[in-house]
Every structure is written in C-alpha cells, then in structure tokens.
C-alpha cells in the first residue's frame, strides 16, 4: 500500500468520507486539506506566538 493512501484510509475511518473523491468547490477534499491546512496554519501559529511572547516580555518588564 502506498504510504499516502494509508494516511487517507486512516482519515476516512475517522471522518467517514472518501477524501480522494469527495469534492468541495470542485477540488478533492485531499487537495484542499494539503493546500489549506499547512501554510495558513503557520500564519495562525505566528499570530499565537506573537500574542503569547508579547505577554511574556511585558510580564518580565523587558519592553
């Protein structure tokens, strides 16, 4: 079994949809998952660390 097929079979068990065939706005669910999750997640992480590290600096009185 190809490794990426294995990943999708596991996901399909959980969300109960065929992620390589089910389409959202014309693209397969799998493509959306890879397209939309990893990169925007980095912006969200940057935003979270911006808030958290800003608070830590203020608490330490370093600003």
């Amino acid at each position: 079994m190809r490794w990426n097929v294995g990943i999708f079979l596991a996901i399909e068990q959980v969300v109960n949809i065929d992620v390589r065939r089910v389409k959202m706005y014309e693209l397969t669910f799998a493509t959306w998952m890879w397209l939309l999750i990893p990169m925007p997640l980095l912006i969200v992480l940057s935003l979270i660390t911006f808030v958290v590290e800003g608070k830590t600096s203020k608490a330490k009185g370093e600003k």
Binding site: L47, T49, F50
Partner: peptide, 14 residues
C-alpha cells in the same frame, strides 16, 4: 521585535 517580524514575514510569505 522578533514575534512581530515573524508574523509579518510569515503572512507575507504564505
């Protein structure tokens, strides 16, 4: 300044 730079830089890049 790094957290601010990281947020701006990553938003720009993505």
């Amino acid at each position: 300044e790094v957290p601010k730079a990281r947020l701006i830089g990553m938003t720009w890049m993505v």
